[in-house]
Amino acid sequence: MIHCYQFDGLNIVLDCYSGSIHMVDKVAYDMIRWYENLPAEEVISKAVEKHGISREDAEECIADIDDLKTAGKLYAPDKYEHLAKDFRKKNIKIKALCLHVAHTCNLNCSYCFASQGKYHGERAIMSYEVGKRAIDFLIENSGFHKNLDIDFFGGEPLMNWDVCKQLVAYGREQEKLHNKNIRFTLTTNGILLDDEVTEFCNKEMHNVVLSLDGRKEVNDRFRVDYAGHGSYDRIVPNFQKFVAKRGDKSYYMRGTFTHYNTDFLNDIKQMLDLGFNELSMEPVVTDPSSPSAITKEDLPVIFGQYEDLARLMVERYNEGRPFTFYHYMLDLTCGPCIYKRIAGCGSGTEYLAVTPWGDLYPCHQFVGDEAYRMGSIYEGVLNTELRDKFASCNAYSRPECKDCWAKLYCSGGCAANSYHASGDINGVYEMGCDIFRKRIECAIAVKLLTSGLEQPGNG
């Protein structure tokens, strides 16, 4: 399967099952597409007629295409479906936990998927004892994995900061004893982000996510406190001080865009103007009936924004002022292996969320939905039927993905998004698929336009 598309003068051909990417001129662009379904002789005749090239030229191009086909870099067959059938089931070891250290929040964002941090339940704070047991549970069930991930999440984790610090100390002690490497991460709304938190994070946190929606009026539409006051003026100075001290360690300025700001590129530009260079801007995760939900009618605008974002990234790269956009990060030469591309995030199998009282859920987006409780850190995963369902959820588990060129980039997508859109983790969130495909097209275009590779002539 191939996917051909054009971006700002680039003709791009993606070969789905080999992972190969080709930049081609307009003659080859047509011939590669035609050759998928037509015999060589017919392709040659069509190319001569449409492009006015000589027969010899067209034959030479077909020979080049045949060489790529022989090398397995064009029209490569699918050799991986059998890997998807039992990969996860054979390897169910846990390597990541999302610790819900606080089911409470000091902001009252109406679009919050976690219902203002309470996850449709009561306010709660994780005790040190529960967190400690969660770390033990992770290490006990990690098997061959050396690298383990623990994310402090909420709600607002800084509302339980002392426990976070104690758990990091405990994790550091345990990783030495068990020959593990624990990467701690934190997501915060910034209200309580002070010098002490900054110093600790710069020492211990592998990555820190800072929530800001961009422009002041956009951020303060939803990200308000319980008195209804916007958070922008309080959090931006905290974030700027944090990033100034962060050095070369990872952070992400992470925004949410909704139906109200489909012109989200302006929010990205605002983040850049504030001095932030590691950026992420995500479509809102909410009930489709919510007024803030993205609609089908929004998609053309959103696609245009993603294209303009790609152009801005190339422009700033050429000016020596590059920035990172989470979704456009692709490592073409040393990227994920086929197993990772098939299996995705590992929710419900190698990645689990832990509530403040120690219950286990497939991921943070399922917390609070009793039907998805999998067990606890004390008794382990009891709902093995549910675990097996998540283990089978991958790039090959949905018939709708069969002919999708992007499935080995999205790994079948997000189980929670599928569940919320269709009622089934093996369903399809079509709008999410449309957005994902556009982002991958733009991400690859950015890579090619900043690669320094000479583009083919246009014949």
């Binding site: 099952y17 080999s18 992972g19 190969s20 990417i21 080709h22 930049m23 081609v24 001129d25 003659v27 080859a28 030229d57 191009c61 080049d64 790529l68 870099k73 991986y80 390897n91 070891k93 390597k95 990541a96 999302c98 061959f144 994995h145 050396k146 690298n147 991930d149 994310d151 999440f153 990467r183 997501t187 996510v209 490592d331 073409l332 030469t333 040393c334 990227g335 994920p336 292996c337 086929i338 197993y339 990772k340 591309r341 995705g344 995030c345 590992g346 190698e350 990645y351 991921c363 943070h364 080995l408 890579k447 090619l448 690669s451 590779l453 000479e454 583009q455 083919p456 002539g457 014949g459």
Partner: peptide
């Protein structure tokens, strides 16, 4: 005339990579 430029990409299981949702670890050691 060069009509096709093939970009270098990885030729398509240790599990040591970071969980991704909220680089390959082996090849980037």
């Amino acid at each position: 005339m060069t009509r096709i430029v093939t970009v270098e990409t990885r030729d398509l299981g240790c599990g040591e990579c970071q969980t991704s949702c909220k680089a390959c670890e082996q090849l980037n050691k």
